[in-house]
């Protein structure tokens, strides 16, 4: 009897594949939100696993802020080609040009919050009734409250205090016209699980996750990469450091850690001994204690 035993990674994988297949079966026009980060890469890998040997039956949706790491963009295009999947790009620049969104002002201005406008527009334009995302409950306290199937009203808003109860593995995807769902198949994975799975399955990830030499500045207790999109203040000094990124967001808000972890095995060891959460270096989460909850209610990822 005891030989019929799954390891925790395989049990998480089985759960996620089940959720992804439920999305395919219960929705008309579902998509995967693809950021180029490790979580959406793992999600995409799981979707491929779920429908093998058929092709992945979802388009990948990328909300392009224009403030990307060049490495992420190349990775995205290579992956889309390899999968033979359809890529849908929502452009934040276009939302700004159309007057739908306004650029933030101030020293640490970035395009993180206004992505929501573009995301909701892209969902509406393409009539997506479900968008799968790689958010995990261990990442952030508002995300710890998410359902697997998370209902959004016609304005794309999340009502965290009035969520549908979710029992066993019975998912309720019923919705009125114009409403949609966000679905989080890897809800129960932790950062450590993600890295273990990447190692186990030998999944390709952008080079940014591995330790590399890069020009950076010190700001808000982290190493921010130098790029065309960042305004360097007079007192800030450009230095070259060996760093790696634990999470990937826009190049303007993603801080790196000094690291020598240049292989997957070393990364796993580093994550195991980490004393800071992975989003600790994300400027977008530092703004207030409830910044994630506030953004999520509006329709953020």
């Amino acid at each position: 009897m005891s030989s019929y035993n799954l390891t925790h990674i395989k049990e998480l994988e089985a759960e996620s594949i089940y959720v992804i297949r439920e999305v395919f079966a219960q929705f008309e026009n579902p998509a995967i939100l693809f950021s180029g980060g490790k979580d959406s890469i793992v999600l995409t890998h799981l979707a491929r696993t779920a429908f093998h040997p058929a092709k992945i039956p979802f388009p990948l949706v990328h909300i392009d802020t224009g403030h990307n790491f060049p490495e992420t963009m190349k990775f995205r295009d290579d992956l889309v080609e390899k999968l033979g999947a359809r890529l849908v790009v929502g452009s934040v620049q276009k939302s700004i040009d159309d007057g739908m969104a306004a650029e933030e002002k101030g020293k640490s201005a970035n395009r993180n919050a206004i992505q929501t406008v573009t995301l909701l527009d892209t969902i509406e334009e393409n009539n997506f009734d479900a968008c799968m995302g790689g958010a995990r409950r261990d990442e952030e306290k508002a995300r710890a409250k998410e359902r697997f199937f998370s209902h959004r009203d016609e304005f794309g808003q999340w009502d965290p205090k009035n969520q549908r109860p979710e029992l066993w593995n019975l998912f309720n995807a019923k919705h009125h016209h114009g409403e949609h769902f966000r679905v989080f198949p890897i809800s129960n994975w932790t950062e450590m699980d993600i890295w273990q799975y990447i190692l186990l399955e030998n999944i390709d990830i952008p080079s940014l996750y591995f330790a590399h030499e890069r020009q950076v500045i010190r700001r808000s207790n982290t190493w921010l990469p130098v790029s065309d999109h960042i305004q360097i203040q007079d007192k800030e000094k450009i230095v070259t450091k060996k760093i790696r990124f634990r999470t990937l967001g826009d190049i303007t808000i993603t801080g790196g850690d000094e690291s020598n972890a240049d292989t997957l095995t070393k990364i796993v060891e580093e994550v195991a001994s980490a004393r800071q959460t992975e989003r600790g270096n994300r400027e977008d989460d530092k703004r207030s204690e409830t910044s994630m909850e506030d953004r999520k209610k509006e329709g953020y990822f």
Binding site: N5, L6, T7, H8, I9, E11, M192, Q196, E269, A272
Partner: peptide, 10 residues
């Protein structure tokens, strides 16, 4: 670390 891969989920 090798132990991590044969962990169970509770």
């Amino acid at each position: 670390m090798s132990g991590y891969l044969d962990m169970e989920l509770l």
